[in-house]
């Protein structure tokens, strides 16, 4: 099938239950809680011993040093100019929050199941990251999960810092 439907974001879809726990500044919030974070290079971390017991690796901490809506008001956007990502104990990346010139749609594949009511999430065995030129397969459909208009960008290399956060 050469024509693949691309469904718009489902407004009444099950929003992520943890979305209201979103720790990021509200500007970066989206209905599903999805956000974009870009950094130069790659994050390396030791291979987890047992993936089933530790589904994630804590990389570091995001800090928005200028974000202070109580003092600057909710409308303040100057805080966007500075974001730090502390990695481990003595590396720091400096970045900023950028408004995207063009919004990004976060798209994923969705498989039609049974009566079409129940939509499955992302299937691992289908996850070849190749959505356009896969010719065969089951009724393939895509959906826009979220529309993201900001991203956190770290475009410089990490700088060394001491444990208390001061630049060495």
């Amino acid at each position: 099938m050469p024509t693949i439907p691309l469904h718009p974001p489902n407004s009444h879809s099950t929003t992520n239950p943890t979305a209201n726990l979103n720790p990021l500044p509200p500007l970066l919030h989206t209905p599903t809680g999805l956000a974009l974070l870009e950094l130069q290079g790659t994050i390396h971390f030791p291979t987890p011993a047992d993936p089933s017991t530790s589904p994630f690796t804590r990389i570091g901490t995001l800090v928005f040093p200028l974000y202070n809506p109580e003092i600057n008001g909710a409308e303040d956007t100057k805080w966007m100019k500075r974001v730090y990502l502390y990695v481990g104990e003595n590396q720091r990346l400096a970045g900023e929050v950028k408004k995207l010139g063009k919004g990004f749609a976060v798209v994923r594949r969705r498989e039609r199941v049974g009566d079409g009511e129940e939509m499955e999430g992302v299937e691992r065995e289908d996850a070849d990251g190749d959505m356009v030129d896969r010719g065969q397969g089951t009724q393939e459909e895509l959906e826009i999960v979220e529309l993201v208009k900001y991203k956190i960008v770290f475009s410089t290399r990490p700088e060394p810092v001491s444990k208390d956060g001061a630049v060495v």
Partner: peptide
Amino acid sequence: VPFSVAHDMQQFRLLE
């Protein structure tokens, strides 16, 4: 804000 990386990555495409 603590930042972590999932071991089991999902597949998304970003469309500008």
